[in-house]
Amino acid sequence: MERFASILNAAHVKDQAPEGEKADEDGWCDVGTGILDWPKLWGEARRLGADYLVVEHDNPADPFAFAANSHAYLAGMQRSGNK
């Protein structure tokens, strides 16, 4: 991210399920339920200039639940001070 800090305004947010889980979703999962440390990653993205989170899942079993669950996690992360 540092290499592109001068043009960074958004962070692409995905999460990977622990190995062997969510095979039906190609190993992706709702943001906050996987192995990535989003408070740390978002803090670093913010430090480098990102203002927006862009959430993605390549193959969600339930797109609406994915969006709702990921939003709830990220909104809670923001409220807890990881802005």
Rank of each mutant, 00 (worst) to 15 (best):
M1F: 01
M1A: 12
R3V: 02
S6Y: 01
I7R: 15
I7N: 12
I7L: 08
L8Y: 09
L8D: 03
N9L: 06
N9Q: 07
A10H: 15
A10D: 13
A10L: 02
A11W: 05
H12T: 06
H12V: 00
H12Y: 08
V13D: 07
V13I: 15
K14Y: 05
K14M: 03
Q16F: 14
A17S: 15
P18E: 06
P18S: 03
E19C: 00
G20D: 05
G20L: 07
G20M: 08
K22Q: 14
K22V: 07
A23P: 04
D24N: 15
D24P: 05
D24I: 09
E25H: 08
G27D: 01
G27K: 06
G27S: 09
G27L: 11
W28H: 15
C29L: 09
C29H: 10
C29V: 15
D30E: 14
V31W: 10
G34F: 00
G34D: 01
I35R: 13
I35K: 12
I35P: 01
L36E: 02
L36N: 11
W38F: 08
W38S: 06
P39Y: 04
K40D: 11
L41V: 12
L41F: 12
L41H: 12
W42E: 00
W42K: 12
G43D: 10
A45K: 01
R46S: 01
R47A: 15
L48N: 06
L48W: 08
G49V: 12
G49I: 10
G49E: 07
A50V: 02
Y52K: 12
L53H: 06
L53Y: 12
V54R: 00
V55D: 03
V55M: 15
H57I: 06
H57R: 09
H57Y: 03
D58K: 13
N59Y: 09
P63T: 03
F66H: 14
F66Y: 15
A68N: 08
A68E: 13
N69W: 05
N69Y: 05
S70L: 10
H71W: 05
H71F: 03
H71N: 02
Y73P: 04
Y73K: 09
L74R: 05
A75M: 09
G76A: 00
G76S: 02
G76I: 03
M77P: 03
Q78N: 07
R79S: 12
R79G: 02
S80T: 10
G81M: 06
N82L: 02
K83A: 14
